[in-house]
């Protein structure tokens, strides 16, 4: 599962949706792999408009990536700085979490990731 995907997902427990602690989910025991994907600079730049940057910073740090800057780079930043662009592309699109868990910071439920597929089905008592 891609790091970018984590920016769009939250805890599947209904009662957690309204809590800010349920997003982003926290990776645990994550095994990462790297996929080579061609850079689409313009898409990446446009993508910044819809990312929750604060959540992405948290995810990146928890996965062991170097700390991201406090605020999202601007379109100009990306156009003038190829390294920032490549680093973001590597983090968001090329990094895949193959094994591990995603933990909700509100209810503590752990969602398993196996062979790159996260399982958000809930045990009976949480449905």
């Amino acid at each position: 599962m891609k790091v970018l995907t984590l920016n769009f997902l939250t805890c599947a427990v209904k009662a957690c949706k309204s809590s800010s602690d349920s997003f982003p989910l926290h990776p645990k025991d994550a095994e990462l792999v790297h996929d080579d994907v061609e850079v689409n600079a313009q898409l990446l730049t446009n993508l910044l408009h819809r990312l929750d940057w604060k959540a992405l910073r948290t995810t990146a740090t928890e996965l062991g990536f170097p700390d991201l800057p406090e605020t999202a780079p601007t379109q100009e930043d990306l156009e003038n700085d190829e390294k920032t662009l490549k680093d973001l592309h590597n983090l968001l699109i090329e990094t895949q979490m193959m094994e591990g868990k995603l933990v909700c910071g509100h209810c503590g439920h752990e969602y398993a990731v196996r062979e790159g597929i996260a399982n958000f089905l809930l045990p009976t008592h949480l449905v």
Binding site: F8, T10, C11, F120
Partner: peptide, 23 residues
């Protein structure tokens, strides 16, 4: 390339339960 968008993932879940609201 040029025709395709970016596919993120297929995740296992019940309907839209894992979706962050409003996205």
């Amino acid at each position: 390339a040029g025709s395709s968008g970016v596919f993120l993932d297929a995740v296992q879940g019940d309907l839209t339960n894992p979706c962050r609201p409003g996205q």
